[in-house]
């Protein structure tokens, strides 16, 4: 079972890193969204500093969502999912592996890219460690939910549009606690750490619920 998990993660990471895998596209999109904020709002340094954590989180969220569509599409269309459904490992493990692979190729690089982009938005440097930590944790839940949305919409016409509609409401708690944990509010350190704890709790809930829901949806689509 862990063999299947590791094999699938390794394969998906390899596929993502090869040409056309989409890691570059997600990173580029992240960059573009972050750059749009000062261009739209104006170069006022104090104001940018205020909105920086929120802007970074919006960029992260949209970048993860952009790459969600591709999580299951290829495996569904080329028949790989059918073979996986007959493997020794249950589809819940497959769903977990797909989400973890997505996190490794989307959430993780985006969180690593965050510090230099944060400086472009005049982000308070003391907030950086907290924000990177919050993004690393939070993006894990973002990937789990994105993978669930991808499983629900796999094989549907206009699946990409539907994912956004289904998943955005579920992203709202992550956005709120993620930005809070990044220390955007004046509430101080204690507030940031409790937001971080809640963020962790949501991740744990997502680890349990998202693969279950994704596997159920995949079974329904394979019929």
């Amino acid at each position: 079972m862990t063999g299947a998990l590791a094999a699938l993660i390794a394969r998906d990471v390899r596929l993502a890193l090869r040409a056309g895998g989409g890691v570059g596209a997600a990173l580029g999109f992240f960059l573009v969204v972050v750059v749009f904020f000062p261009l739209a709002i104006g170069p006022d340094q104090a104001f940018l500093r205020r909105i920086a954590p929120g802007a970074m989180w919006i960029a992260l969220l949209l970048s993860v969502l952009l790459s969600a569509d591709r999580i299951y599409t290829a495996d569904f269309e080329d028949g790989s999912l059918e073979v996986m459904a007959l493997g020794a490992a249950p589809l819940e493990v497959v769903a977990l592996a797909k989400a973890l692979a997505h996190w490794l190729t989307a959430g993780l690089p985006l969180a690593v890219l965050a510090p230099p982009l944060g400086l472009m938005l005049n982000l308070d440097i003391t907030l950086l460690p907290g924000m990177i930590a919050a993004m690393l944790i939070g993006s894990l839940a973002l990937s789990l939910l994105a993978a669930m949305g991808a499983a629900i919409t796999v094989g549907l016409r206009k699946g990409g549009l539907l994912i956004s509609l289904l998943i955005l409401p579920l992203y709202i708690p992550l956005l709120i606690f993620g930005v809070s944990a990044s220390g955007a509010q004046v509430g101080g350190a204690s507030l940031a750490s409790s937001a971080m704890a809640i963020l962790g709790a949501i991740v744990l809930l997502a680890v349990v619920v998202a693969p279950l829901a994704a596997a159920a949806a995949l079974r329904a689509h394979l019929r």
Partner: peptide, 23 residues
């Protein structure tokens, strides 16, 4: 089946969303 999954996941999320929005 799919709609059922969406509704059930949604209903799990309603209290979380409510809590987060209040926070």
């Amino acid at each position: 089946k799919i709609a059922g999954i969406v509704a059930i996941v949604g209903v799990i999320n309603v209290p979380i969303i409510k809590f987060s929005v209040e926070w």
